[in-house]
């Protein structure tokens, strides 16, 4: 079972067991990681599940779609080169140990 590590804005860290096939957003919202709001429920429409993917992992993710790129222009916290929408990151066994940092706001 892959483990995902969420680093919170106050530097607390949360290790969560994830199921392959779920999105990082689903893992966060079902494990009480409240920094992920996900208003649209994972339909890539609201840009409220923004995460910063650890630099060591960013290249190992599937590339983002044009739609995700456009939505990221509208995120509430600063957009950085490692910004992604967590609803668009599907968990695979290869992502065991994935580290993402959570922004201080989503709206």
């Amino acid at each position: 079972m892959p483990t995902i590590i969420f680093n919170r804005p106050d530097n607390r860290s949360e290790r969560v067991d994830a199921s392959a096939g779920d999105s990082v957003m689903q893992v966060a919202t079902t494990h009480g990681v409240d920094e992920i709001v996900a208003e649209c429920g994972g339909n890539a429409m609201c840009a409220t599940c923004h995460v910063y993917v650890d630099e060591r992992w960013i290249a190992r993710l599937a590339p983002m779609s044009e739609e995700e790129d456009e939505l990221l222009h509208g995120v509430a916290a600063e957009r950085l080169p490692n910004s992604r929408l967590s609803c668009q990151i599907k968990i695979t066994p290869e992502l065991d140990g994935l580290v993402v940092r959570l922004p201080d706001r989503q709206i």
């Binding site: 429409m45 609201c46 840009a47 739609e67 456009e70 939505l71 222009h73 509208g74 995120v75």
Partner: peptide, 14 residues
């Protein structure tokens, strides 16, 4: 759909 998504995007809401 892509047209309306862009017209009503998070960036436009800001």
């Amino acid at each position: 759909r892509a047209v309306l998504s862009r017209v009503l995007s998070p960036t436009v809401m800001k």
